[in-house]
């Protein structure tokens, strides 16, 4: 699970994240939405341990990301919007590398890696250098590597970028299946349809604050809008809507 308490991040005078409290319980699929520069990626980077919060704490799978970073990271996987991959390695070599870094044995890497590679239709690309792969295939390699060690928490930024509908479906299915077995998913996206279809709860970040949290129905009610999620999102994030409408604590 993921626990954010009083999370703040400032860049000089700019408050990119301004006091987020959130609890995403084990096995929940949580999607975070927000306009550009709302603070979504900053929040994700703090969860991944790439940035230190200016204030507040983050716990991943029960471990404080700042005080026990390795314990937290070993239970987590993070896939950024443009993931780093070693260009001169083959897809399989990269998967093995990631498995070894997560202390997996070779036989475990082999069995889980093959299973995931087949699930994500990577067999034809598995021994090809990453530099020659398309953006979508690279994205699939990154997701397979991240899922390999069965993370308890999966943090992903814009997962569907570059994926064709078939592979986007596979990603959605695999993530949903994993949440059934207890993996917590924290997903950031601009694709409202993905959030609407997949998420158990949706959070909306606007101007560094979590202004709304709930399932689709709750968000519609909060926005006072009966239309689709898009209408609720547009109403909640409009410049006129200054009021923070999330419940205090925004916990599950």
């Amino acid at each position: 699970m993921i626990e954010l308490v009083g999370l703040k991040k400032s860049f000089g005078d700019l408050k990119a994240v301004n006091g987020i409290d959130l609890l995403v319980p084990k096995g929940e699929f949580f999607a975070v939405l927000g306009p550009n520069a709302a603070g979504k990626t900053t929040t994700i980077k703090m969860i991944a341990g790439l940035m230190k919060p200016s204030a507040g704490t983050i716990k991943v799978a029960g471990f404080n990301v700042q005080d026990e970073p390795l314990e937290a990271r070993s239970r987590m996987a993070y896939v950024p919007d443009f993931p780093f991959l070693y260009d001169k390695l083959t897809a399989w070599e990269f998967i093995v590398f990631t498995g070894e870094i997560f202390r997996m044995g070779r036989s475990e890497i082999d069995s889980k890696g093959r299973e995931l590679a087949e699930r994500f239709h990577l067999q034809d690309f598995i021994n090809k250098p990453i530099e020659g792969l398309s953006h979508g295939t690279r994205q699939r390699v990154a997701i397979v590597s991240a899922l390999l060690h069965d993370p308890e928490v999966f943090v992903i930024d814009e997962p569907m970028v570059g994926l064709d509908p078939q592979h986007a479906r596979i990603v959605k299915d695999v993530l949903k299946e994993r949440t059934m077995t207890g993996m917590t998913v924290f997903l950031s996206t601009h694709q409202l349809s993905v959030a609407e279809e997949m998420a158990d709860r949706i959070g909306i970040i606007h101007q560094g604050q979590l202004i709304a949290v709930g399932d689709r129905e709750e968000l519609r009610q909060l926005s006072g809008n009966d239309g689709a999620l898009e209408s609720a999102f547009l109403t909640l994030t409009s410049e006129d809507s200054q009021e923070v409408v999330a419940e205090p604590g925004a916990s599950s």
Binding site: D67, E68, P69, L70, E71, R73, S74, F97, E100, R103
Partner: peptide, 15 residues
């Protein structure tokens, strides 16, 4: 930050 040698893969540098 606490240094933790037990979580890290034993041969992380080698990998």
């Amino acid at each position: 930050m606490k240094a933790s040698g037990t979580i890290e893969a034993p041969n992380a540098f080698g990998v």
